[in-house]
Structures are given as C-alpha cells and as structure tokens.
C-alpha cells in the first residue's frame, strides 16, 4: 500500500510540474502582451514595464525563476487585472465561492443520483426505469450552459411574474440555488446511469442468489446487499466528475455572473495577465489532481480485492 501511495504521489507531482511548464510555455506563445489596451503605450513604457515584472528575460530563465519562487510559495503579483495584488490573495478570496457551489452541486448530484440509479435498477423494465433513463440520457446530452440558461430564463425573470431567484449573483442563499442546480444536473444524471449499470452487475452475482435463497425481501437485497458493492465503481466516476464540475463551473459562473475562480481564469487568459494565468492554472490543476488521487486511493481502500502492486487499470 505504502509503495503504491508513494508511486501515485510522485506521479501527481510530476504531472503538476508538466502542467506548470506547459502552461508557462503556451502562455508565452500567445501573441500580444499584457500592456496593450485602448491606448497603446510607447515602446519605452513597455520596456520599463517588462523590466519591472521580469518579462524582458528569455522564457526559459523566466520559467526557472518562476519555479523557484513557486517552491517558496510565492505566486507573484497580478500585472494587469488587479495590478500588484498578490495572486495567492486573489485565489484565496475567490476560490471559496467556486468551491461552495461545486461542493453543493456534487453533493446533491450524489444524494439524488445514486438513489435514482438504485430505483431504476430495482424497478428495471418498468415505466419508472424507462422514464429515468430518458431523463438521464437527455441530462447528459445537454451542455452545462444550456441547462444554466434555461434555469435562468424560467426562474429568474424570463417569464413575467415568475421571478423567484435573483438574476445576478449577490451572495445570498437564494442566489446559490440556481447555479448549484445547473452545475449538479449533469453529474446527477451521469451518476444515476452508472449506479444503475453497477447495480444490475452486482444483482447478477452469486451472493445475491444466496440472499434470495435465504428468503430476504427484494428491497432489502437491492438497497442493502447489492448497493454496497455497486457503490465501488461509482466511486471511480467521482474523480472525473469533480473535474467536470469544475469545468462546468467556468460556464455556470459566466452565465450567472458569479465572482468565482473559474470565470476569473477565463478572463485572465483573455487579458494576458501572465502570473494570474499561472497561479489559477496551477491551483486548479493541483486541486483536480489531488482529488483524483484521493478518489483512487479511496477506491483501493473500499475494495480490498484490487491488486495494489499492479498499478490498477
């Protein structure tokens, strides 16, 4: 176990390093520079600014300096969007909003999706199963922005006298509901589909037959015996789903004008705010990588049948 964990952690660090370097090189390959705005500054001003923020050195040297600072926990300062404010400060002030929405979305997706999947498996072949399958297939076919804008239109002012929720994010609990609902819809449908499949797999196993032979009620077999084993594959889908929720977060934050990290990341790319792009990318990438790592380790913990020494595909 220890060896496996060590190997995975090393792999995660390596991936993060690659992402960091890749982002740095890509970012510097974007034509244009951060100083361009409505008024084009003179060449002397650009040179002075470049020198101040260390952009006059070769890219490789810049990368080396950046990595060195990073090791000391220094993400640099924003050079355009919020001039001279430390990037880490921006991230820590914006991430809580994104994280709250993401966590609520994932939670409701699990709490609703898994029971719905069980229900579909329990009632398989009936109209309940068919209805759930139709809803879930439609759910995984609608891009996040479609779900978000439909909700926005229906419940936040599109229809007269039907404005239940605020159109623009203001920080009250009401303004969290629509973004969370929109963000959790895809994972909910996806998890419910996966739970149904996993459930049907485990229902066909021998120990279920034993339970049935013992005379247990069907409901008890499905929701107690089969569910426990069916949850194992569902855990593996959680890792990618967390990443997906984050990427859906970009869209939902744009639609609902939420001052979150995802929207800020997109804006920082458009504004060529180099340290901010680097900071947010590294932070978000580290977050996704750590989440995936945790989910993988959790997977091994709950299923002792899996061979740890062989990597685990």
């Amino acid at each position: 176990m220890a060896k496996y964990v060590l190997k995975r952690v090393l792999m995660a660090v390596l991936t993060l390093l690659i992402v960091t370097c890749l982002t740095f090189l890509l970012m510097n390959a974007i034509p244009g520079n951060p100083w361009l705005s409505e008024k084009t500054p003179t060449q002397a001003t650009i040179d002075a600014l470049n020198e101040k923020y260390g952009l006059d050195k070769p890219v490789i040297v810049q990368l080396g300096l950046y990595l060195e600072d990073l090791l000391h926990g220094d993400f640099g300062v924003s050079i355009k969007m919020q001039k001279d404010r430390p990037v880490l400060d921006i991230i820590t002030s914006m991430f809580p909003v994104s994280a709250t929405i993401g966590v609520i979305a994932i939670l409701w997706a699990i709490l609703v999706g898994v029971p719905l999947g069980c229900l579909a498996a329990y009632k398989r072949g009936t109209w309940v199963d068919s209805l759930l399958r139709v809803i879930c297939t439609i759910g995984i076919s609608m891009p996040g922005f479609v779900v978000a804008t439909i909700l926005l239109y229906l419940l936040a002012g599109g229809i007269p006298d039907w404005k239940i929720f605020p159109t623009i994010f203001v920080g009250t609990w009401q303004s969290y509901i629509l973004p969370c609902a929109a963000l959790g819809f895809y994972p909910m449908c996806y998890l419910s589909r996966q739970t149904r499949t996993a459930m049907l797999d485990s229902i066909n196993q021998e120990y279920i037959k034993t339970a049935r032979a013992k005379g247990l009620k069907n409901r008890k077999i499905v929701f107690k015996h089969a569910l426990r084993n069916a949850l194992i594959p569902v855990i593996t889908y959680l890792g990618p789903q967390i990443a997906f929720t984050l990427c859906g977060g970009f869209v939902v934050e744009t639609v609902f004008s939420i001052p979150g990290l995802g929207r800020y990341f997109v804006q920082s790319i458009q504004n060529r705010d180099y340290p901010l792009i680097m900071g947010t990318t590294i932070f978000l990438a580290a977050f996704i990588i750590v989440m995936n790592l945790l989910v993988d380790l959790l997977y091994k913990l709950v299923d002792p049948r899996i061979n740890l020494s062989k990597g685990g595909n």
Partner: peptide, 8 residues
C-alpha cells in the same frame, strides 16, 4: 486536467 489546457 484537460479543460484547463484546452482553454489555454
């Protein structure tokens, strides 16, 4: 994380 890289 492909979404970040693909945006970049």
């Amino acid at each position: 994380p492909e979404v970040l890289i693909i945006l970049l």
